[in-house]
Design a protein around this nucleic acid. Structure first.
Lengths: 242, 242
DNA sequence: CAGTGGTGTGTGGCATGTCACTCTCGGCGG
DNA sequence: CCGCCGAGAGTGACATGCCACACACCACTG
């Protein structure tokens, strides 16, 4: 278990450490752990650990089992479908909105994050790459002006990360990921809100298909995967009753 | 403060009681309360109260202020915009999906809930009416098959409820609300997924406009309200890269 | 050897103890 | 009368105590 950082409330430190441990697989899906054990490993008392676990439980990463322990939940195929269906509904719309609200500092940060992604991809540093990937999306989401949306979608990524980490490489190169973000960034900077939204949608859909296809292979087999219901061909267009 | 129910973990009881107290305004927005006080009023120790408050804090209903207390957050105009922007993105899509997956038991429950709404409206029982309203939406959302979406949207309603309760009456009669749900229900039963989605969108948009207009009047004044970004005229249609 | 009952260990849930810090309020100096 | 300041009360955050209960393990019985 990783040591704790400083200059923060213990609760937040524990939360970060536990989340990281789950994502990296240090706390393996399906396994049981006691609050006491985790607290000892982190060098704190049970209270902040329990409180952090409550937050993770609300997010769906763990589950308390009375008198048994805390179970690390694994993301099922259905979980992935749910997460990506939500992301497909929210992120393209957020990008579209963000383009119309973007200011220069935010634009600059996006460029900076993208450059960091490129650099990490060149160095074949998957972890750093995914970190910047996440921050890139986060900045875009926040630029939409909807904090709740940004926070929620960012939380959804946790469900996927432990699949993405160490498996992304098998199906898609880091350079491919960079390329998809490049397209999004270009369209954002060009002020093309619809184009950026479409690029984001394609990016998420692509990621979803790779992860779900991979996971479906690892499970029972063929399952009807349809994420398209999120944005049907004949959809919400021209539906402005006002 | 309402007494606690039985046959449930204390934590859940406290959570329900606190949520209800916030919604009804018994815990007024902006006010500070101590965990000790709340625990005493509820007749339990500080621990389950604190844990319940942590969950409410994650949801954005309260905020811990170190060495000061727990502040009951008021939903600002911007909060309402965020919530309804999210609902506009999620609920119409969920309804569209739900229509294609609906089974007879669920249909039956929707009819039952709608009948209950009618009855409560006739009896001018606002609280019961809103309860059934919420369950109606919840059933529809769950019928989409996306549990996360259902849970999240249901949680979003908490942010609005304490505005809706005792204020809905001022701008819209209970019968109007029933009528909007009638339209949705008819289209769902007819298997018209696009129509149902559009009706849901109109319903949410209507509600949002009433609440936001009312709130804007109570605040500084005119503010640029635009929820439309969630579903632009030229949007995600024909965007199936697969 | 197989089945069973009881006991011991470990757990989450709840209660309580402890501490650093913040805010209040009254007394004192101006 | 007004302003400052310091002591006390109250708080959230964290640590610890306590309990009912689930489960594994083992001795005992057939």
């Amino acid at each position: 278990m990783k040591a704790l950082a400083q200059n923060e409330t213990v609760n937040a430190q524990v939360l970060t450490a536990l989340r990281a441990a789950v994502i990296t697989g240090e706390l393996a899906p399906g396994t049981l752990h006691s609050v006491q054990t985790l607290a000892t490993e982190l060098g704190v008392s049970r209270t902040p650990v329990r409180e952090a676990l409550i937050k993770l439980a609300q997010q769906g990463m763990v589950r308390f089992e009375r008198n048994r322990g805390v179970r690390i939940l694994q993301t099922s195929l259905h979980d992935l479908e749910e997460v990506f269906a939500l992301r497909l509904l929210l992120e393209p719309a957020a990008v579209r909105r963000a383009v119309t609200r973007l200011d220069e500092p935010t634009r600059k940060e996006l460029r900076k994050l993208f450059a960091a992604m490129q650099k990490a991809a060149k160095a074949d540093d998957e972890f750093t790459m995914l970190e910047h990937d996440r921050r890139f999306h986060r900045v875009v989401l926040e630029a939409s002006g909807n904090t709740r949306l940004a926070t929620y979608v960012d939380g959804l990524r946790d469900m996927v990360l432990r699949r993405g980490v160490s498996t992304a490489r098998e199906s898609r190169s880091l350079d491919d990921i960079v390329d998809e973000h490049a397209e999004i960034l270009v369209l954002i900077e060009a002020g093309d809100s619809d184009g950026a939204a479409q690029a984001m949608r394609a990016h998420i859909l692509h990621t979803a298909e790779l992860l779900i296809a991979q996971e479906a292979g690892a499970e029972v087999g063929a399952l009807d995967i349809d994420l398209g219901w999120t944005n049907p061909a004949a959809g919400d267009a021209d539906m402005r009753p006002d």
